[in-house]
């Protein structure tokens, strides 16, 4: 691919614990263009730590290493922390699972968006406010001027997550990492938020990494899916070809969920093979 935005080669994240070193991510490689890539796995698969490592949000006691971790040709592991910070929130943005924990509770939503914008760009107050309002409109918040002055606890989960997306997108990032962005939301709200995300990603030509435990949701939303198990990538596949997945883990994961209209009693269960983790 000529238009490569992010290249990850042999990414490893190691945590020190009481009983020795534990590798949460064990040699993950993939590349991303201006497309929607899903990373799917169960708890402990290392999917979130992969996202955090790209974002530079790995906890300080852990160690990140990679043969290559490059964003737009820039080696993320060798640039200074200052450059990394400048990149974060500006050209790379991240949405987390629960807006309750990622929005500042003592600052109005509008001010948070304005602050984000002004830390990364030199803009006047009025212009910043206008762009923030426009962004709130873009995430389909009906009355942006009212929401602008609300505190995070005064809005619903779905609204909070939209505000979070607005805050992350206001600087016009090229890469967006969304870690379970809709898991805390009700199913109907979930689809609204995904629709907004989908539209914005398509309009702005962003690259998107969508991290989730929900293989079916990811496959309906993304172009390509990376399936992780025990810190490793077991399969990379086009979302449209998921039905023909080769790896037994991917197939097991697809099969074990109950589906409306497909009666199977008992449900097929995953028979975990030790060699998958090897």
């Amino acid at each position: 691919m000529s238009d490569t935005l992010l290249e990850v080669d042999d990414l490893r994240v190691t945590f020190p614990t009481r009983t020795g070193l534990v590798q949460a991510v064990r040699g993950v490689s993939f590349s991303l263009g201006r497309e929607r890539l899903g990373i799917v796995g169960e708890s402990g698969s290392g999917k979130s730590q992969t996202g955090r490592a790209i974002m530079g949000l790995t906890p300080p006691q852990a160690e990140v290493s990679a043969t290559k971790l490059a964003f737009d040709g820039m080696d993320l592991l060798s640039i200074s922390p200052r450059e990394r910070r400048a990149l974060r929130g500006n050209r790379i943005a991240m949405i987390l699972q629960d807006p309750k924990y990622s929005l500042d509770p003592v600052m109005t939503i509008g001010r948070q968006i304005v602050e984000t914008l002004r830390t990364h760009e030199k803009v006047g107050k009025t212009e910043a406010r206008e762009r923030a309002l426009a962004m709130l409109q873009a995430v389909q918040i009906r009355d942006p001027a009212r929401v602008f002055d609300l505190y995070p606890h005064e809005v619903s989960g779905g609204m909070g997550q939209r505000a979070m997306i607005a805050m992350m997108l206001v600087t016009g990032p090229e890469l967006m990492i969304a870690d379970e962005p809709t898991s805390a939301l009700d199913v109907t709200v979930q689809l609204d938020v995904l629709n907004i995300l989908d539209k914005l990603v398509a309009e702005r030509g962003m690259g998107l990494i969508f991290i989730s435990h929900d293989l079916r949701l990811v496959s309906s939303f993304c172009d390509r899916v990376v399936v992780m198990y025990a810190g490793k990538v077991v399969e990379q596949i086009k979302a449209s070809e998921l039905r023909d997945a080769q790896h037994p883990y991917t197939r097991g994961l697809l099969n074990c969920m109950p589906r409306i209209g497909f009666e199977r009693h008992p449900l097929p269960v995953l028979d975990r093979k030790p060699e998958w983790a090897a």
Binding site: E42, V187, H213, C256, P258, P266, L267
Partner: peptide, 29 residues
Amino acid sequence: DASVQAEVLNLLEEVRRRRKLTFLMVSHD
């Protein structure tokens, strides 16, 4: 996790059948 969910759902169905239980189950799914 989805794979564990399948195991637990199977278990619940099995005990219900064996013990002839009445279930009242809440879910968003």
